[in-house]
Design a protein around this nucleic acid. Structure first.
Lengths: 114, 114
DNA sequence: TAATTATGACGTAAATATACGTCAAGTAAT
DNA sequence: ATTACTTGACGTATATTTACGTCATAATTA
């Protein structure tokens, strides 16, 4: 029992950490950016855009999909990927909310060494 | 040469991803929260607060320090840890800036399957 | 000075993430 | 019907992360 201590933390923190994790790889950021830039639902091989193999990109897509950041709707053989703007807005407010509450002590206060 | 393809992405995306990665673990979020809540510079063992060993916490602290999210100033034997609010604000604006630009296509547009 | 305390450096086992190849199955085109 | 195409499932090698123990070192304290 060396690992997996995440259950020791509050659910909210863990959930937030999961969203940050989804955004912690340049390929996934690029995918989100790409889906947004094209202003369409992209079908099929996004791997042409990134310099990564199809299966790798698919893995990244699934991670984004699992967290609800993108949608992937099957249409025949192909799959249309779109941003899920609802979740993105939720994440945006949750994460910036967290960061916004982080305040340092005021300079001069007891124990404030800044 | 199986990995480390991050150099294939734009520097800006990679830098953002690095910040998000620093925030992708509940222990590190908890540390930031704790440093903020106490409104002081905490000296010494934050591991009392989390249910993690000292060396583990130290590792997390170093990751946060490497990215400039916290400061750790040595004072004798002890070390005072504080939030680095400047960097936190930078990350905050970077994050919301990135997410804010992510827009889906408009419903009804060609290739928009929403 | 000796004991205690605080921290850093180093090593390491287990877990997880990353990148990709291969195969299978379903759909569409010929 | 056969072929080509698109995707998902599975396996896997390598890299990285996580959690921690141990030892070393420097600074206090007794």
């Amino acid at each position: 029992m060396v690992q997996s201590k995440t259950e020791l933390f509050e659910k909210e923190l863990t959930e937030m950490a999961d969203f940050f994790k989804a955004l912690s790889h340049p390929a996934r950021l690029r995918i989100l950016q790409f889906l947004s830039e094209t202003k369409t639902c992209i079908t099929g091989d996004i791997s042409d855009e990134l310099s990564l193999g199809r299966t790798t990109v698919n893995q990244h897509l699934n991670e984004l999909k699992d967290l609800g950041l993108i949608k992937g709707e099957t249409e025949g053989v192909k799959v249309n990927y779109c941003l899920n703007e609802a979740t993105i807005r939720k994440v945006e407010s949750q994460l910036s909310g967290f960061l916004a509450t982080l305040k340092t002590c005021d300079t001069g206060t007891k124990n404030c060494k800044i």
